[in-house]
C-alpha cells in the first residue's frame, strides 16, 4: 500500500502555496502585529475565500486528508487568521449539527470568521464568532466583552472572552471530540509548515552568508544542524498525515494518532526554531529580520497544544496508564 498523495491533492497544495506566496508574504504577517495595516490581512482572507477555503469541507467536498497539506501551507505562510478554526473545525461542525444559527453562508462568503476558545482565543480580534468546545458540549458566542491580549506572537491577535454563554450547538460528545481533534490536527499541520518555513529561510541564508571566504552553510557544523532539523520534520510530517487519514476514516485509533502527531509536530517545530536561530547567528535574534515572525508563531501554536493531555491519551491507548498508576 502506498501512503501518498493523489494528483488532485498535490495540485491543491501547490495552488494554495502559490496563493499564499503572493497573498501572505512576511510583510502581511508583520502587518498583523499591533500597529500594522490590517487591510492587508483582510485582503488575505478575501484571497482565501476566493479559493473556497473557508468552505472547503462542505463546498469543495474535501476531507481531512485533502485538508491537511493545505493547512500545512497556512503554517508555512504563518497566516495570521483563524483558518484552521473556521475551515477545518467550525464549518464541518456547523454542517454536522444542521447549522442552527445559520452561520455557514456567511462563512462561505468570507464574512464570518470563527475563532476557537482555549484559555485565550487566538485570532479572536479578527473573528466574528467564538466556538467553545468543552467536554461533550459545543456552543458559539459573540465577541461581546472580549478583552485584547497581546502575546509573544504579536500577530496572534488574541482575546480573552468572559465566561461563555451563547448559542448551544450540540451536546454530541462524538462530534465535539471530532472538532477538537481537527483543531489539534490543524495545529500539528501548521507546526510542520512553520518548521519547513524556518528551515527554508535558514537554508537560503546560509547559502548567501559568507564567513572565512565560504558560505557558512558549507561548514559541517551548520549542515548537521539543518539535517537534524529536517529529519525531525520528516519524522513528524507522516504522523500528521496518518492522523488526517485516521480522522477522515473516523477510525477508532484516531485520537491516539492525532495526539501522536501533535507531540511530534510541537517538538519538530521547536527544534526547527532553535536550529534556525542558531544557524542565522545574531541576525536571527533581531525583529528586523523575518525569522522571528515564524519562530514566535511556532512557539505560540505549540503553546496552544496541551502536550501533557496528548501524552496521556497515547499512553491510555497503549494501555500504559493503568500500569503507571
Amino acid at each position: 500500500m502506498r501512503f501518498g498523495w493523489t494528483a488532485d491533492q498535490v495540485a491543491l497544495r501547490e495552488a494554495v502555496r502559490d496563493l499564499l506566496a503572493s497573498a501572505c508574504p512576511p510583510s502581511v504577517v508583520r502587518a498583523a502585529w499591533p500597529g500594522g495595516d490590517e487591510s492587508s490581512v483582510e485582503a488575505l482572507w478575501s484571497a482565501l475565500t476566493g479559493m473556497g477555503i473557508p468552505g472547503a469541507v462542505g463546498e469543495l467536498g474535501l476531507d481531512e486528508v485533502d485538508l491537511v497539506s493545505l493547512l500545512e501551507e497556512t503554517g508555512y505562510a504563518a497566516v495570521p487568521l483563524p483558518v484552521v478554526e473556521t475551515a477545518a473545525v467550525a464549518a464541518p461542525l456547523l454542517a454536522a449539527t444542521g447549522d442552527p444559527g445559520g452561520h455557514l453562508p456567511g462563512i462561505l462568503a468570507g464574512r464570518t470568521r470563527v475563532a476557537v476558545a482555549g484559555g485565550l482565543v487566538p485570532y479572536g480580534r479578527r473573528a466574528t464568532l467564538v466556538l467553545h468546545l468543552d467536554g461533550p458540549a459545543a456552543w458559539l458566542s459573540t465577541l461581546d466583552g472580549a478583552v485584547d491580549e497581546t502575546t509573544v506572537d504579536g500577530s496572534l491577535a488574541a482575546v480573552r472572552v468572559p465566561k461563555p454563554s451563547g448559542e448551544p450547538l450540540t451536546e454530541d460528545a462524538e462530534l465535539v471530540g471530532l472538532a477538537a481533534d481537527r483543531l489539534a490536527l490543524g495545529a500539528a499541520a501548521q507546526l510542520v509548515g512553520l518548521g519547513r518555513r524556518m528551515l527554508d529561510l535558514t537554508v537560503g541564508y546560509v547559502r548567501e552568508r559568507r564567513q572565512f571566504g565560504v558560505p557558512v552553510g558549507s561548514f559541517q557544523a551548520v549542515k548537521h544542524h539543518l539535517a537534524d532539523a529536517l529529519v525531525r520534520l520528516e519524522f513528524a510530517a507522516p504522523a500528521v498525515y496518518a492522523a488526517a487519514w485516521a480522522l477522515a476514516g473516523r477510525r477508532p485509533e484516531r485520537g491516539r494518532d492525532v495526539s501522536t502527531a501533535v507531540l511530534l509536530a510541537t517538538e519538530a517545530a521547536r527544534e526547527a526554531a532553535r536550529t534556525a536561530i542558531q544557524c542565522h547567528g545574531a541576525i536571527g535574534y533581531t525583529v528586523e529580520y523575518d525569522l522571528h515572525l515564524y519562530a514566535k508563531r511556532a512557539w505560540a501554536v505549540a503553546a496552544t497544544c496541551d502536550t501533557d493531555a496528548h501524552l496521556a491519551r497515547v499512553a491510555e491507548a497503549l494501555d500504559l496508564k493503568g500500569a503507571a498508576a
Binding site: 484559555g119 497581546t150 502575546t151 509573544v152 512557539w299 505549540a302 503553546a303 496552544t304
Partner: peptide
C-alpha cells in the same frame, strides 16, 4: 501549556 501565550501589558513579557 500556555506559558508562551499569556501576557498582560502589550509586550510586557
Amino acid at each position: 501549556p500556555g506559558a508562551m501565550l499569556a501576557e498582560g501589558e502589550p509586550y510586557a513579557l
